[in-house]
Simulated scan of single mutants.
Amino acid sequence: MSDFLLFVALVSYFISLNLEVGGATSIGINYGLLGDNLPPPERCVSLLKSRNVNRVRIFDPNHDVLTALANAGGMEVVLGTLNADLEQLASSPSFAAQWVSAHVIPFRPRLKFRYITAGNEVIPGPMAHLVLNAIKNLDSALKSAQITDVPVTTAIGMASIGKSYPPSAGEFSDESRPYAGPVVEFLASNGYPLLANVYPYFAYKGDPANIAREYALGNSVAGGGGKRVVDGNLEYRGLFDAMVDAMYAAAEKVNGGGLKVVVSETGWPSAGAEVATVDNARAYVNNVAAKARAGAGTPRRQGSEVETYLFALFNEDLKPQGEEQNFGLYRPDLTEVYKVDLN
Rank of each mutant, 00 (worst) to 15 (best):
A222Y: 00
A159S: 15
V261C: 10
P269E: 08
G258S: 15
G225V: 09
A70V: 02
P299G: 12
L10K: 03
L318M: 12
P151I: 05
S173L: 08
L313S: 13
E87D: 12
E87H: 07
L38M: 06
L194H: 07
V278Q: 15
I211N: 10
H63C: 00
L187Y: 08
F59E: 09
E324A: 13
S101E: 11
G238R: 14
F14S: 07
L82D: 12
I161K: 03
G73N: 10
L38G: 05
V230E: 15
T117E: 13
F4P: 00
D85Q: 13
D60P: 00
G225I: 10
K49E: 13
V261P: 03
L342S: 09
E316G: 08
V53A: 12
P40N: 10
A90Y: 01
N52S: 14
I135G: 05
A296V: 08
A242V: 04
N287V: 14
K260Y: 02
L217T: 09
F186W: 13
P166H: 09
G328K: 05
L5A: 15
R57F: 10
V100M: 02
N197A: 14
A249T: 06
F172A: 11
D279P: 06
A9L: 13
F107I: 00
L38A: 06
L48Q: 10
Q88W: 00
G28F: 09
L89K: 02
H129L: 01
M158H: 08
S270H: 15
V78S: 14
G218K: 01
L259R: 06
Y215T: 04
A246F: 07
G162R: 07
A249F: 01
P193R: 06
L259C: 09
N52V: 07
F95C: 01
P124R: 06
P40L: 07
S189D: 10
S16C: 10
F14T: 08
N255W: 01
Y215R: 05
V150T: 11
I29N: 02
V244G: 11
G23P: 10
S140N: 07
L38K: 03
D149P: 07
V183K: 03
A84H: 04
V254E: 13
G119K: 02
Y338S: 13
Q88I: 00
I147L: 15
L89I: 01
Y115G: 01
E185A: 15
Y248E: 11
M127K: 14
A276D: 11
G73C: 08
R237Y: 07
G125W: 03
G32C: 11
E76G: 09
G22N: 12
E185N: 12
A249D: 11
N30Y: 08
V122N: 06
T298I: 04
Y204F: 15
L138D: 06
A296Y: 02
S50F: 05
E121K: 11
